[in-house]
Design a protein around this nucleic acid. Structure first.
Lengths: 187, 187
DNA sequence: TCCGGTTGTAAGCAGCTGCTTACAAAACTA
DNA sequence: TAGTTTTGTAAGCAGCTGCTTACAACCGGA
C-alpha cells in the first residue's frame, strides 16, 4: 500500500521520524502505555528499525527526553524560567512544553530514564534556586518545580475544572503571586 | 506449604486481604505496573478469587480508591484539610495518606477509575474552595490541590533532593505561607 | 559489473497480561 | 445423612509485549 518494496532509503529521516513519533506518544500516554508498535506505526517505519537505531524502547525514551528536555532550559533567563514554563504549559496550542507532560505521564515507571529525569529536575531547580537569597533556596526551588508539575498533572491528566480551561493569564497571576513568597526575584 | 487443601474459608477476609494488598501495590506502583498476580500473591489468595469478588482489575482499583479516598476527607475540618493532607503526605511513617500517591502513580492510565478520581478531586476542591471569599475560589482551590499533587509527585516518584528528605515542618511552613495568598482562611 | 555494506521487511519467540474454566473441598440446609 | 451452595485450586487461553532473526532490496564504490 504505502511503501513500495524498499521505500525511500534514508536512515537519518527514519531516525528522526521515530524520535518525533515517540516524543508525541510518550507525552500523550507515558512510557508504559506506549508500545514500540505504536511508535513504529505512527512513524510509518518497520518496528525492527526502532531497535536497530536505538537499541531498546528505554533508550529511545532517553533520547527523546534528552533532545526535547534541555533546549528551552538553556535559552530562557532565570527570572523568566518559572513563568515561561507555566505559560508554555498553559498555552492552548503552539509549541507547548511537553517535557513536563512526558515526565509525569511516565512517572509510574521506575528505572526508566530515572537518572535522566532526575538530571533535568536538578537543572530546573538549580536555575530556580538562584532567584532567592534564602538559605533554603534549594528547597524553595523544589517546591516551585513541584507546583509546575502538579498543575500539569491536574490539567493534562485529570482535566479537572475549572483549572483545565482557565484563562492562562489569570492562572499565571495567582501562581506567580504565591510563588514570589518563595522566590522573590521570580518574573 | 502455606495452605492446606482448602484453606481457612472466609470470603470476607479474602476480600479484605485483596483490598489491602491492592491498596498497597497500587500506591507503590500505580495501576498499570501492578499485576493481578502480584495482588493475589501479596494477599496470599488464589488469583481467580480476585475476579470472583471484584469482577476485574479495574473494578478492584475503584473499590480501593472508594474505600480509602473519602475517609479523611470526611473527618477533617476544612481549615485543616490542606495542612493535614500535606503533613500526612510528608510524614515519614504511620498512616500516610496514600490516596494522592495512588492517584498520581496511576495517572498514566486513561479510563481507569477516571470518573472516580475526578470525583475525589472535586470533593477535595469543593472543600478547599470554602476557604476564600474570592470569586475565583474554585480555581484557587484547584491550584492548591495541584500543589499537593506536585509535591507528592516530586517526593515520592522522583525522590528529588532536597525536597524528598526535607523537614516536614519546614516544608509545611513554606507551602502554607504561599498558599495563604490563595486561600486566606487555610490552617 | 559485481560486491559489501546499509536500509527495510516479515515472521516469530518467549514471557507476561487479564481473565476463564473445570473441578475439588468445605460449609450450610434439609 | 444427602444435596446444594459457597469457597478455594490448578491449569490454561488468547492477546499483547519487547525484542530477535533471517532475509530481500537498494546503494555506492571497485
Amino acid at each position: 500500500m504505502t511503501a513500495q518494496p524498499g521505500r525511500r532509503r534514508d536512515a537519518a529521516a527514519t531516525r528522526a521520524a521515530l524520535l518525533d513519533a515517540a516524543a508525541a506518544l510518550f507525552a500523550e500516554r507515558g512510557f508504559d502505555r506506549t508500545t514500540v508498535r505504536d511508535i513504529a506505526g505512527q512513524a510509518e517505519v518497520n518496528q525492527a528499525l526502532l531497535f536497530r537505531y536505538f537499541g531498546s524502547k528505554e533508550a529511545l525514551f532517553e533520547a527523546v527526553v534528552a533532545r526535547n528536555g534541555r533546549e528551552h532550559l538553556a535559552t530562557t533567563p532565570p527570572e523568566r524560567l518559572f513563568s515561561a514554563s507555566l505559560r508554555g504549559m498553559l498555552a492552548p496550542e503552539g509549541p507547548r512544553n511537553r517535557t513536563l507532560e512526558t515526565y509525569l505521564r511516565s512517572s509510574g515507571s521506575d528505572g526508566v530514564g530515572a537518572t535522566l529525569r532526575q538530571e533535568i529536575g536538578e537543572e530546573y531547580a538549580r536555575v530556580l534556586a538562584t532567584l532567592t537569597d534564602a538559605p533554603d533556596a534549594g528547597l524553595r526551588a523544589d517546591l516551585a518545580l513541584a507546583w509546575l508539575m502538579g498543575i500539569a498533572l491536574v490539567r493534562e491528566v485529570t482535566g479537572k475544572e475549572p483549572l483545565a480551561s482557565a484563562d492562562p493569564e489569570h492562572v499565571s497571576e495567582l501562581v506567580l503571586t504565591a510563588v514570589r513568597t518563595l522566590l522573590e526575584r521570580s518574573e
